[in-house]
Design a protein around this nucleic acid. Structure first.
Lengths: 337, 337
DNA sequence: GTGAAAGCGCTAACAA
DNA sequence: TTGTTAGCGCTTTCAC
């Protein structure tokens, strides 16, 4: 096995033209059964693999779908990716991932890079893109789906939910449950625009009810359980009388729960904890953390479907799909009862 | 902005030939400052993005590195990916991920698909590949690094550690700490070959010490905290007198810990728990779970580096890099003390 | 049902 | 330093 076999080699071995070989391999109709068999056989024997570079260049389209996410350490995005896998299943598309680490410059580079592979479509996390990045997408002339958020103007289509409203809704539910002294603990709010939106929505609901955060603490690192532990310790030191802590997400909230459990602070008896995302980590302690459950898989699936159907000629344009997350107070409902 | 601008358009706009434009854009030396500026300017104005398909086809090489992992829900692989990102930083390579869901057929398809993009190299999880997949890699004529495992024969290079030994070592440490009645709780052992290897190593050490598992339980779903909870409950019902449970990994062990905490079972006082991977989720309860800490980031980084240096002419062939994981008994050491 | 010619957009190699 | 000539391996188009 010296030089890699090309289509020409396969064709020669099968005794047909390149075109017939190409058609046979791609399963295009109008090829005789006999030739299909012959070509398949030859390809098999030569260990022919094909060259998508050449195929895509020639046909002016690729089967790649570019997916840009901020972070993979957060399982949420891993789940979105799962959803995308589901959504493109059977379509013959192949996802290509890029991770931005919440860095706008990196994001720009990654998107640019992806575009140069001529993907069939792009799925990008978030609505708040820098001007240059946005222009890049606008000029790309391929379906672009922005996911996770709908509080803003999408370039093309978007699938997600309102983070502002998610914050408001859980705040209202917590207030209705009788909680009054709220603390906030968050990670990397300048980077994580959506977490910041939730905080704003939450605070807005507080203010509407004549309340506000009693105390806020923030870490500048990315979300983690460890950070949640520390933030909670800090917050409770500064404001021991809070009866509820709102965290930027469930990872951080889980850290808070772990801290409280070990410090012997009853949750939600003494202090209620609320996060965002309905993660499995929180499900390790069913009901202990109030959360907003988000349809991550479904977002991925829908986004993939939009792209696939846009490729089937349907004009994806402007579609904005709002999915509704679900507030789950867990044990807090029973707390005052 | 109608048709996407090509190199020819940029060249025309800058008043130079395609080649000069190409060189200027790629930063190849031997282009006059004036022309570089002119070309850059023209590219900018036209919103030129380039076409890697054409570039790679023409130059017969791409900057893609294919990465095949079984699963993204498990943070371990997300961390490996981080390491890979680190390892290729500055090399201009771009990773492309594929997720197999532990399905060998899917794995074959993904690898085949990746090869047809003519990647510069491939990073594949695991050593135990089906014959056909193995042949595919052998014939690919690009550097292939298999990661996470070294108990077996790599196609080309490999970076990882011995799972059998990891199982043995933690078993020995636990025995030395005075534990005697071992239970086993695992998920998806037929799919997760490496977890199965750890179990074998663990059991081997038990037998060498005249012991064996008192009881074993298995779930056929993928690892999760929820599964760990259930398995632990089952196991402790069947064999209430075990003094140590070995789990297939830290996710499952964390579920076990959560179960015990809520059931009021002292950990590690009444029952010791041991897992694998040193995950941050376990770090929510420092020391509660004995674990084997593995250098996941480093595996990713090393793998990426091997590929990069192989591309610089160094023959990667046959390299097998063994990294050593580290047994951490956590609080168990103090338990009997 | 099959094949020949003409590129896709770019770069390697050589010439000027 | 710059430009010209040939492809890279495949698919599209159109003729047979």
């Amino acid at each position: 096995m010296k030089k890699k076999a090309t289509l020409a080699d396969v064709a020669a071995a099968a005794g047909v033209s390149k075109m017939t070989a190409s058609r046979a391999l791609r399963g295009v109709r109008d090829v005789s059964k006999a030739n299909i068999a012959r070509v398949r056989q030859a390809a098999q024997e030569l260990g022919y693999v094909g060259n998508f570079l050449a195929a895509s260049l020639s046909s002016q389209r690729s089967d790649l779908i570019g997916v840009v996410v901020p972070n993979l350490a957060n399982i949420v995005f891993a789940q979105v990716l799962s959803g995308i896998s589901e959504g493109i299943a059977g379509s013959g598309m192949q996802p290509v991932f890029g991770v931005t680490d919440y860095d706008p410059d990196k994001e720009y580079d990654i998107i640019r890079n992806m575009l140069s592979w001529q993907p069939a479509g792009l799925i990008v996390t978030g609505l708040d893109l820098p001007e240059a990045t946005r222009r890049l997408l606008e000029n790309a002339e391929i379906p672009v789906v922005q996911i996770m958020d709908i509080d803003g103007e999408p370039v093309d289509a978007c699938v997600g939910f309102s983070h502002i409203r998610a914050g408001e809704e859980i705040a209202q539910a917590l207030i209705a449950a009788g909680l009054r002294k709220f603390g906030y603990a968050g990670c990397a709010l300048t980077m994580d625009v959506r977490a910041a939106k939730r905080r704003i929505g939450f605070q807005r609901a507080l203010i509407q009810n004549g309340l506000d955060f009693v105390e806020e603490v923030e870490a500048f690192e990315l979300s983690s359980i460890g950070a949640g532990r520390l933030l909670t310790e800090q917050l409770l030191k500064k404001a021991p009388d809070v009866d509820c802590i709102y965290f930027s997400n469930d990872d951080v909230a889980a850290g808070g729960l772990f801290y409280c459990l070990e410090a012997g602070i009853a949750v939600p008896g003494k202090v209620a904890l609320a996060g965002f995302n309905g993660l499995s980590i929180a499900s390790g302690f069913p009901g202990r953390i109030a959360t907003v459950r988000t349809p991550r898989r479904e977002i991925g699936r829908k986004a993939a479907e939009i792209i696939c159907s846009a490729l089937d000629g349907k004009p994806a344009g402007g579609e904005a799909i709002e999915l509704t997350p679900e507030v789950d107070l867990g044990l807090i409902g029973a707390r005052k009862g």
